[in-house]
C-alpha cells in the first residue's frame, strides 16, 4: 500500500492517540485535537487514525462531515466569522456576508482562491448587543456597515 502519510509529521498525531488510548467515545475529541494540530483533517491523517485505533474510516468520515467544526480542507490564513444569529440577522448580517463573498470571490464556508481568507457564517457568538458582529481572527467587531467590515478585513 502506498504510504500516503509522508507529507505529514505524525508525531503530534501519535501523541494525541496515546493520550486517548483505548477510552471509548473519543472520536470527537481526537478529531478536535487533530484539527488543532494540523489545521484541518487531512485524509492521510484520518487513514492513520483508523489504522491505529481500529475506528472504521466510515465512522471517522461520518463524524467529520456531520459536525460543522470539522474541515477536510485547509483554511485560509485569516478567519472571518460573520454572525448570522437572529439579532445580527435582523441588523443586516446578510449584507455583510454578501459584501465579503463578492469582494473575495469566496462563498460562505469556503476560502479565497489565494488562501488568505476563510469566510464562515456562524450562529450567535453571544454578542447580540453589538449586532451585527464580525470576528476577524479573534478580534470582535460590532455595529459596522458592510464597507467598514471590508476595510477591517483588508487591514488584517
Amino acid at each position: 500500500m502506498l504510504d500516503m502519510t509522508t507529507n505529514f509529521d505524525l508525531a503530534p498525531l501519535h501523541a494525541i492517540l496515546e493520550e486517548y488510548g483505548s477510552q471509548k467515545g473519543t472520536v470527537i475529541p481526537i478529531l478536535q485535537r487533530v484539527q488543532d494540530a494540523y489545521g484541518y483533517l487531512p485524509k492521510e491523517i484520518l487513514a492513520e487514525i483508523s489504522k491505529r485505533t481500529n475506528i472504521p474510516l466510515t465512522q471517522l468520515m461520518g463524524v467529520a462531515t456531520f459536525y460543522t467544526q470539522f474541515r477536510l480542507s485547509p483554511r485560509g490564513k485569516h478567519l472571518i466569522r460573520v454572525c448570522d444569529g437572529t439579532a445580527c440577522h435582523v441588523s443586516g448580517a446578510p449584507h455583510i456576508v454578501r459584501a465579503i463573498e463578492k469582494e473575495y470571490d469566496m462563498p460562505a464556508g469556503s476560502s479565497s482562491p489565494d488562501l488568505k481568507y476563510t469566510l464562515e457564517v456562524v450562529y450567535c457568538v453571544g454578542a447580540c448587543g453589538l449586532a451585527p458582529v464580525v470576528i476577524v481572527d479573534d478580534k470582535v467587531y460590532g455595529r459596522l456597515s458592510p464597507d467598514a467590515v471590508l476595510e477591517k478585513v483588508r487591514d488584517v
Binding site: K24, G25, T26, V27, I28, L31, Q32, V63, F66, Y67, T68, Q69, F70, Y123
Partner: peptide, 18 residues
C-alpha cells in the same frame, strides 16, 4: 463540535459516544 441537533437528548448521547 457544531451540530444544533445535538441539543436533542438522543442525538446528544450519540455525540457523547463519539
Amino acid at each position: 463540535a457544531g451540530a444544533f441537533v445535538c441539543g436533542e437528548e438522543m442525538a446528544l448521547i450519540a455525540s457523547v459516544e463519539g
